[in-house]
């Protein structure tokens, strides 16, 4: 018997922000098992003194995968089995769409990761997706659907997708989405948002995301209009107008060392303008505004001296006197991790065992105005990075060799990730950031995932322990996996029949949400 290679032992933090002295949190990253144990038990496990662990606790820890008789190779085989199920069934079930109506933008933000596209000239930049290309994209989606795939969401992206001169193009895309019951998300700078409110209300938009970089002139300097016009007041007025029309808005506040004061200044300004009070009223059913969410994120800037990282943003929030709960609601990465851990603690689903971090690996169609397909949002505009194109004459998708590489940039294959306890929580990390750090899209990128996970898990589990005294906090994949026969494992890994694999997976109870 030994401690699993995917085991994490974390402190428990109580509501008073102090460590709970007599308990520790065990997390098995491979099976998604979260268990609270006496501190002395955790000490025995760390020292390998398994015989001193209480018998009933021993059985519980073995059943849930924290301690195991499996070799490392057998644990990796479990990882590969789960990744294979995800790749064959779950990922394959859905096609998401990301459309860039144009590369053009009315802003010239100094840190924009698409700045390189400006070198290609005004004519190339100003191209707007044609009616024929839009028809071809949706014909390709219809082909996917006719072959069994489900259609996911459509995200409008740019350039700037909501420039008022492109109203007709956005309407045509939205009409096509509505006909196929696809929900729409849009990432916009918000400058022309008011012009699009009628379209957003008419079609199934689920939210609008608008970023800010500070108050007033700070924002105007960093979110710079290409003609030098002020942007802050107009963006906030547009956001308020959208909310009044019942449209949900995610406001992301970019933070770097250059605009640290924006944390307090923007929060104060949002309060002064009534955004936060009106959101509280909405939650109590006292108005019909759209949902307003705001959160802080480390600006992805090429200036490494200015880059804070997600951990840096969380640290700044804490040092400004904000609580751990506030950080887990309003910090981008910490919030994502905290919401996910809380979901697991509801015990109605296993850990998400996909090893693909984002649409680049999961096979979404990211189409530029010329019909080229790209793997990653940050690779657009660089034709060398294209993985295929939409054939305008046939209405179908054609892939090149690079597509195969991206499909398998997953955490069951990246060497550093295969034996990492955070595998199913960070999934290999962002490929674009890996390129920044290592010059290689196909390396791992850990970023601040480990810190975010430890922070959120310790706080959420600690609070639950104090409130409920519950020790077994989540479901564990170790249990259904233990019931698979050798033949069933072989069939999952080798059968060419997706229905046969699905039948085994369903019988084993690995997908309780279906």
């Amino acid at each position: 018997m030994r401690l699993s290679n995917y085991e994490m032992i974390l402190p428990l933090i109580g509501a008073d922000e102090k460590e709970i002295d007599d308990r520790a949190l065990l997390v098995n990253g491979l099976y998604g098992a979260f268990d609270i144990v006496p501190k002395r038990c955790a000490d025995f496990l760390i020292k390998g003194k398994f015989s001193q662990v209480d018998s009933s606790l021993w059985e519980q820890l073995a059943r849930r995968g924290h301690i195991t008789t499996k070799s490392l190779e057998e644990e990796i085989a479990d990882l590969e089995l789960l990744a294979h199920i995800d790749r064959r069934i779950i990922q394959k079930s859905r096609i998401d769409l990301i459309i860039m109506p144009t590369y053009d933008c009315n802003f010239r933000c100094p840190y924009c990761f698409e700045r390189k596209r400006l070198a290609r000239g005004e004519t190339w930049l100003a191209k707007v997706m044609s009616h024929e290309m839009i028809q071809a994209i949706f014909a390709a989606l219809d082909d996917y659907r006719s072959r069994g795939y489900g259609l996911g969401n459509c995200t409008l992206y740019g350039g700037e997708p909501l420039m008022k001169e492109n109203l007709a193009t956005v309407r045509e895309i939205a009409e096509n989405c509505a006909q196929r019951e696809m929900k729409i998300e849009v990432l916009t700078n918000g400058y022309d948002l008011a012009s699009f409110i009628p379209i957003i209300k008419e079609f199934p938009f689920v939210f609008v995301q608008v970023p800010l970089d500070g108050v007033g002139k700070t924002n105007d300097r960093l979110r710079r209009h290409k003609e030098g016009k002020d942007t802050y007041e107009r963006i906030l007025n547009n956001v308020d107008m959208a909310l009044e029309h019942g449209i949900g808005v995610n406001m992301r506040i970019n933070i770097s060392k250059e605009n640290l004061s924006s944390i307090d200044e923007l929060t104060d300004d949002l309060k002064r303008r009534g955004f936060l009070a009106k959101e509280n009223e909405r939650r109590m059913g006292q108005n019909q505004r759209g949902e307003f969410v705001h959160y802080f994120k480390a600006t992805v800037t090429p200036d490494r001296n200015s880059f804070l990282g997600e951990g840096g943003v969380a640290r700044e929030l804490l040092e400004s006197g904000r609580s751990a709960e506030y950080v887990m609601e309003h910090s981008c990465l910490y919030g994502i991790v905290a919401r996910y851990i809380r979901k697991l603690f509801q015990k109605d689903t296993y850990v998400d065992f996909s090893t693909a971090i984002c649409n680049a690996e999961r096979g979404a169609l990211l189409v530029d105005p010329y019909g080229l397909l790209f793997p990653c949002w940050e690779s657009v505009g660089d034709d060398d990075m294209a993985v295929g194109r939409v054939d305008e004459t046939q209405g179908r998708v054609l892939w090149n060799f690079a597509k195969a590489k991206w499909r398998l940039r997953t955490s069951d294959r990246i060497p550093a990730c295969r034996i990492c306890p955070y595998n199913f929580f960070c999934k290999g990390g962002c490929a674009a950031r890996a390129k920044d750090v290592y010059g290689d899209y196909f390396r791992e990128y850990c970023g601040d995932h480990k810190q975010a996970f430890a922070f959120a898990a310790s706080h959420i589990a600690g609070k639950m322990w104090q409130e409920r005294g519950e020790a077994e906090l989540s479901l564990s994949l170790a249990e259904p996996l233990a019931h698979l026969t050798r033949k069933e494992r072989y069939m999952i890994m080798n059968s060419k029949s997706i229905p046969d694999v699905f039948a085994i997976v369903k019988k084993a109870g690995l997908l309780p949400q279906i």
Partner: peptide, 26 residues
């Protein structure tokens, strides 16, 4: 690699289940 080449062909395969029923899991 052989696995990557197989993944390329998998892009063109039909999905033999009802994707609309499974897509919310993904």
């Amino acid at each position: 690699t052989e696995d990557e080449a197989k993944a390329y062909f998998a892009e063109m395969e039909d999905f033999e289940l009802d994707g609309d029923k499974l897509k919310d899991v993904a």
